[in-house]
């Protein structure tokens, strides 16, 4: 156990090793490690962001779905309302049409009745004239009593 020049040589070797490690070993590895840490951190952040986006999108989709469902319900209600309206309208129109047809029919009937009455009256007037003429044949001069005959005829009409 004697101290000698070996100590100096070892110290020199030590300092060279330290220098080498500081200059060539430590920095590149640290750089690589730090770069990787950054990459990992970025990846984690991106993942987090993606998760957030997904959450937002799913939230949004639920909203849209809800809105659409609401809208569909509204449309259905509206359609039902419209349908009943249309039915009501149709009923109304049908009623009007019916009454109009009825009126037309009545008027026609009346007209028929009227014209029948007319024909009847004519025939009655003719029969009456004919009867009167038969009764009055001798006494009545068609020429002298023409105005009388016309007035009777007009009265019957």
């Amino acid at each position: 156990m004697n101290i000698n020049f070996t100590l100096v040589s070892q110290a020199l070797a030590f300092s060279i090793f330290i220098w080498f490690t500081i200059k060539y070993v430590w920095p590149p590895l640290m750089q690589a490690i730090e770069e990787r840490q950054k990459v990992i951190a970025d990846g984690l952040a991106a993942g987090e962001r993606g998760k957030q986006d997904l959450e937002l999108a799913s939230q949004r989709s639920t909203e849209v779905l809800k809105e659409a469902r609401q809208r569909a319900a509204e449309i259905v209600t509206l359609a039902e309302k419209r349908a009943s309206e249309i039915i009501e309208e149709a009923k109304l129109i049908a009623k009007e049409e019916g009454s109009r047809i009825l009126i037309g029919a009545k008027a026609e009937i009346e007209h028929e009745v009227f014209s029948a009455k007319e024909v009847l009256r004519q025939q009655v007037a003719e029969i009456a004239i004919a009867g009167a003429a038969r009764i009055l044949r001798r006494e009545v001069d068609a020429g002298a009593h023409a105005d009388l005959l016309v007035s009777i005829e007009e009265e019957i009409k």
Binding site: Y24, V25, L29, A32, R36
Partner: peptide, 16 residues
């Protein structure tokens, strides 16, 4: 130290 150096020289930030 040389072993460390040889490894570190080719160190990648990717999959080691």
């Amino acid at each position: 130290i040389g072993f460390l150096w040889l490894v570190v020289r080719k160190a990648t930030a990717g999959v080691p």
